[in-house]
Design a protein around this nucleic acid. Sequence first.
DNA 1: CGGATCGTTGACAGGTATCAATGCTGGTGG
DNA 2: CCACCAGCATTGATACCTGTCAACGATCCG
Lengths: 231, 231
Amino acid sequence: MKPVEINQAWSGVEKCKLCSIRHLVLFADLNEDDFQHLHHPIKEVEFKTGSILYKRNDTINYVYTIRSGLVKLVHYLPNGSYRITRLLRQGDLAGIEALNGSAYLQHAIAMQETSVCKIPVKNIQQLNNESAQLYKQLTARWQKVQSDADIWLTHLTMGSSKHRVAHLLIYLAGDKTNNEFFLPSREDIGALLAITTETASRIIAEFKREDLLKSQKNLASIDRSKLKLIL
Amino acid sequence: MKPVEINQAWSGVEKCKLCSIRHLVLFADLNEDDFQHLHHPIKEVEFKTGSILYKRNDTINYVYTIRSGLVKLVHYLPNGSYRITRLLRQGDLAGIEALNGSAYLQHAIAMQETSVCKIPVKNIQQLNNESAQLYKQLTARWQKVQSDADIWLTHLTMGSSKHRVAHLLIYLAGDKTNNEFFLPSREDIGALLAITTETASRIIAEFKREDLLKSQKNLASIDRSKLKLIL
DNA sequence: CGGATCGTTGACAGGTATCAATGCTGGTGG
DNA sequence: CCACCAGCATTGATACCTGTCAACGATCCG
């Protein structure tokens, strides 16, 4: 996990109105008038695999909307190991805790090539004072945090390792029609499911042998119906 | 877990201003003027052990502030077992997902005699339109949800069962000076830590034999320093 | 080609789930 | 009042699973 340089693409508020994934993001409900309140520049930024969006306790200035890619939120433990507490995908918000002025709670690291919109916290606070539109989106985002956390706790930390890995794979595959998704390293799978790297590897290998899972490089596809029989 | 009747104590907004735990609750920052906006009655309600505050998918009308006691948020699983995803104590908010109009995400059940303030969602929405004071408290509450979930995932679902139980006991003991706290049933401990009832019982019994834990009935106290040596 | 990193596999010990039986306690009805 | 019952806690025996330690293979890159 080596930090990678950030290369900024372009800046501007105007383009937010034309954003192709705007229905998914924080500003979905804003009207023409609201956009006039955006005085600070929103930047679109690319992160390479392994690069860090922010670190725990970093000074807080931005909230990040994921446009594409995959981001993990990581807690490092005293013994040097780590635990992944959440994955963020398209439309998710990273660093949302910035909004009440405390420090970031975890490290946010790109697991693959990731594109984000970097939104100054000041923008959000302004909009919240001057317009009530944003409020709905923000509470919806917070709720997703809670419901994701519950799913995580309910399905991804209990049962046998095989169950957990199966659940994770189905979660990762999501509703993609092409059925192809990013398969994390065995170490990350372990950190996600609270199992060891070796166990993760054994199970992934077993799934491959049984044709429940196919992969080349980091791209994988699953046989959903067969996999669900395990659950 | 049998439902128990609810007996309502008193209603009124006036008393909110004099609330003894107001510094802990949602309305901490409201001023005299804001209270004028509260047009719907806030009720103080008592729940007995095992009674249900609300069920998953119930129609949503209220958010609950815990005044005293202990509430568990529960996910029931297809196979009849259940998983506790969060515990709520004094100052915590239950049913916060009500704020964006979706259904409750889990069942909320009192684990001991519990006193709550039942706040109409309409009140919150009104206040948010007419005053920005509530916004800070709400985001703070949401953030606590996230950070609690992370702590849960980081400490309470990994490591040996002994580690997890020790962590849970320390969490339950909190910062109480009298060092006496509510000890959940072995079944609930299992549902909290993703271990079986039997394993939970074995470990609790072992802790008692080693004088790390004392209990009569549901009230327990721990030897913090000795217990921390296990972590 | 050699080195680094990651994935895979094996052997083994220890931990946990499972199945089953036995105390313990509070409440109920005779 | 006491016997009984239901629900919870505890304990035991056993099989299985997973962590641990270790070795080896695969791939990429300098």
